[in-house]
Simulated scan of single mutants.
Amino acid sequence: METVDVGVPIERHVGEDRVALTPEVVRRLTERGITVRVASQAGSKANFPDDDYIKVGASIVTQQQALGCNIVLTVRTPIDEDISNLKHGTLLIGMLNPFDKGNAVKLASAGLTAFALEAAPRTTRAQALDVLSSQANIAGYKATLIAAHHYPRFMPMLMTAAGTVKAARVLVLGAGVAGLQAIATAKRLGAIVEASDVRPAAKEQIESLGAKFLDVPFETDEEREAGLGSAGYARAMPQSWLARQAAMVHERAKQADIVITTALIPGRPAPTLIPVDTVAKMKGGSVIVDLAAGRGAEYQSHVGGNCPLTETDKVVVRYGVTIVGLSNLAAMMPTDASALYARNLLEFLKLIVTKEGTVNIDLDDDIVAATLLTRAGQVLRKF
């Protein structure tokens, strides 16, 4: 079988400053005898200059040459021009949005063997290549810092000669990886933090970080079953439970200074957690940071997030409330985001590249099978 060479192109989406491989991971690949070709300046926005790649054995090449390798590693689905420069049969590995059927068809039409790492199962064995967790961790941290930036007051309580400043009240909705990091960061900044999640197991995690868990008790077996989630993800909850949660969130949001929403269900629109009438009742100067921006329901000619008023990649003020809809927070911390992501890719490559440096796609491996999106012109994922 043909020995592999790995290409790392420049990410050409606007605002995407991450790079698929860092020099640290390139060194580990070249030590295994794998040829790595990095497009010139691919890592510059993440503070990895070309010279750092050369020192660990990579070749610096043009974008087209990086795309010409038989394995191409990306952060996101390449733009159409770059897809056209990929050879039929190329192994494309990255965060390829496996829930977007149109995107999958486009990759299949290009003759690519595409692996979407977001589709990896939530199992102990797959943790080391869990790209959703590694990037959500960064997003949750950055969300809190952005909230603090837009909030016109202090986060911690301060006792000064001029008087006492009350601590900010932060409400975090959704206690997955991003939500838990947002809670931890807000606590470090001295805020009073409350959090809610549909899963009962989140209570212990929330309270271990020093936040108060806002409990909406289950009243039916259907609610209880949905609250357990599925394959490590939250599930859509019954309307009866959602109505009780909405009433509680409405009251807590009115008292909050900062609300951070992180609720996403894979393959489905993000649920509405902060409706318009809630925003209208919030305090002037308060802040919403919506990590589901651009993935919610349509509202007045735009797609919202967990709040209908959220506008993708914009910061807007509605009813005196600042609503932050930045959709790629991990890319705003590209150095660490790239470092974690590159290690995720390395762990995945170990599953499909043998010690002899050849490709072996073993569909009996649950991780490989789950992430394989397209092959031989066919879309393999069901929509």
Rank of each mutant, 00 (worst) to 15 (best):
V249A: 11
A186W: 09
A247P: 09
P217R: 04
I206H: 04
S240V: 12
M248V: 08
R188A: 14
H250M: 08
G227D: 07
A234S: 14
A201W: 03
S240P: 07
S240G: 06
G227V: 03
P217M: 03
S196M: 10
A201H: 05
A263F: 08
D257N: 13
Y233H: 13
G210S: 01
A236V: 10
P217I: 02
G229T: 03
S208V: 00
A175S: 04
A182I: 13
A247N: 14
E219F: 04
A178F: 14
A195W: 08
A246R: 13
I206R: 02
A226M: 02
D197F: 01
V193F: 11
P271C: 03
D215W: 04
P200L: 01
R268C: 00
P217F: 03
F213E: 03
V259M: 09
G190I: 12
G229V: 02
G267P: 04
A202F: 05
E222T: 01
G176N: 10
S196R: 05
E225Q: 13
R235M: 13
P266L: 11
I192R: 15
A270N: 10
Q181A: 13
A175V: 02
I265S: 14
A234H: 02
K187W: 11
L180H: 07
G176P: 08
R224Y: 10
G229A: 03
P266E: 11
G176H: 13
Q205L: 03
A178M: 12
E223H: 01
K212F: 07
E219T: 04
G179C: 10
P217E: 01
G210P: 02
A211G: 03
L173F: 05
A211I: 06
E194G: 09
K187L: 09
L209G: 07
A201C: 07
E194H: 14
A195G: 11
G227M: 01
D197M: 02
S230F: 14
S208D: 00
A201F: 04
E207A: 00
R199F: 00
I192L: 14
E194V: 09
G210H: 01
G267H: 03
I192D: 13
P266G: 15
D257E: 06
A186K: 12
D257M: 05
L264R: 13
R244W: 12
V193Y: 14
A231L: 06
Y233P: 07
T272N: 04
M248C: 05
I265C: 13
V198M: 02
L189D: 11
A186G: 08
L173T: 07
A253H: 12
G174V: 05
V249C: 05
T262P: 04
A246Y: 05
I265H: 10
E251I: 12
R188Q: 15
H250C: 08
G179E: 06
E225W: 11
Q239C: 07
M248A: 06
V177T: 15
G232N: 08
E219D: 05
K187I: 14
E219M: 07
A226E: 01
Y233L: 07
A243R: 12
A175D: 01
L242I: 13
L180D: 05
I183A: 02
G229W: 02
D215G: 04
Y233M: 09
Y233Q: 08
E223T: 00
S230M: 14
A243Y: 08
D257W: 06
A211D: 02
A246N: 10
D221I: 05
G190E: 12
S196Q: 13
T185R: 09
G179N: 10
